[in-house]
Simulated scan of single mutants.
Amino acid sequence: MTNRTFSKRLSANDVGSTGGHQGGILVPRTEGELLTFLPHLDSTIKNPDAWIECEDETGTVRKFRFVYYNNKLHDDGGTRNEYRITYMTKYFREVGAREGEELELSKSGTSSTYKIRVVRTVAPLDNQEESDGVRIKIKSAWRRVH
């Protein structure tokens, strides 16, 4: 039984601490291995989606929406061509997820349910002067955990 795990460093926007509205966590189109790990979405359909069941740290099963916003492929003047996992805000709030922590998503080869957890930061993030108005972008790419 093969278990695969992917992780993503959470940005301030991912966890809602910027006050902005984000349409879910980005899954880059270039992340082929991650995209094969998630349910297949048919690009010939406009904005295909699939609901994925994820069991969190407490054993609670949550449903998130994996969606391919692809109106660029279907509409004149369409601009979106991106994969996202949405409906995660409530989960992040309930577990107190913070910028810089890691989101882990894993699944065994035979299961249809994913496991999800937030890996807490061991050391605190460097404090930054709030008055300077500058934010340092933390690399937010997904990576395979071995």
Results as ranks from 00 to 15, higher is better:
81 N>P: 07
48 P>L: 06
26 L>H: 12
97 A>F: 07
139 K>I: 01
27 V>I: 00
135 R>F: 07
26 L>E: 07
1 M>H: 12
11 S>I: 00
37 F>A: 08
52 I>C: 04
99 E>M: 10
119 V>R: 04
13 N>L: 15
125 L>F: 04
16 G>I: 03
46 K>M: 14
11 S>Q: 11
134 V>M: 07
74 H>R: 11
2 T>V: 14
143 R>G: 02
60 T>C: 06
24 G>H: 02
42 D>Y: 00
34 L>D: 15
6 F>Q: 08
100 G>D: 11
60 T>N: 09
46 K>P: 03
130 E>K: 03
31 E>H: 13
121 T>I: 01
138 I>N: 10
140 S>Y: 05
9 R>T: 07
111 S>T: 01
138 I>C: 05
5 T>H: 02
50 A>M: 03
7 S>T: 12
67 V>R: 06
110 T>E: 11
135 R>M: 04
118 V>D: 11
68 Y>V: 09
72 K>R: 14
79 T>K: 15
73 L>C: 06
58 T>G: 05
132 D>S: 08
91 Y>N: 07
119 V>W: 05
119 V>P: 03
69 Y>H: 13
84 R>A: 03
110 T>W: 07
23 G>S: 00
45 I>H: 13
2 T>N: 14
66 F>D: 12
21 H>E: 06
69 Y>L: 13
135 R>Y: 08
23 G>L: 00
99 E>K: 13
92 F>M: 05
75 D>F: 02
18 T>G: 04
42 D>Q: 00
54 C>P: 05
137 K>F: 11
22 Q>N: 13
38 L>T: 08
15 V>L: 08
76 D>C: 04
72 K>C: 05
72 K>P: 04
122 V>P: 02
39 P>Y: 09
109 G>D: 02
74 H>E: 10
79 T>Q: 14
24 G>M: 00
135 R>D: 03
117 R>K: 00
43 S>Q: 11
21 H>Y: 01
102 E>L: 15
68 Y>Q: 07
101 E>V: 01
15 V>H: 07
27 V>D: 00
98 R>S: 13
140 S>C: 10
135 R>L: 08
56 D>N: 15
111 S>W: 01
127 N>M: 01
86 T>G: 04
10 L>P: 02
60 T>V: 03
143 R>Q: 03
108 S>Y: 01
102 E>H: 12
65 R>W: 11
140 S>I: 02
41 L>H: 04
81 N>T: 04
87 Y>K: 13
63 K>W: 09
133 G>D: 10
44 T>S: 14
87 Y>A: 13
142 W>M: 11
43 S>V: 12
128 Q>E: 13
94 E>Q: 14
53 E>L: 09
124 P>R: 14
124 P>W: 09
130 E>Q: 01
45 I>D: 08
80 R>N: 15
55 E>W: 05
100 G>Y: 11
33 E>A: 15
132 D>M: 02
20 G>D: 02
94 E>M: 06
119 V>Q: 09
42 D>P: 10
58 T>Y: 09
100 G>A: 08
42 D>G: 02
18 T>M: 07
19 G>I: 00
118 V>P: 14
104 E>L: 13
39 P>Q: 05
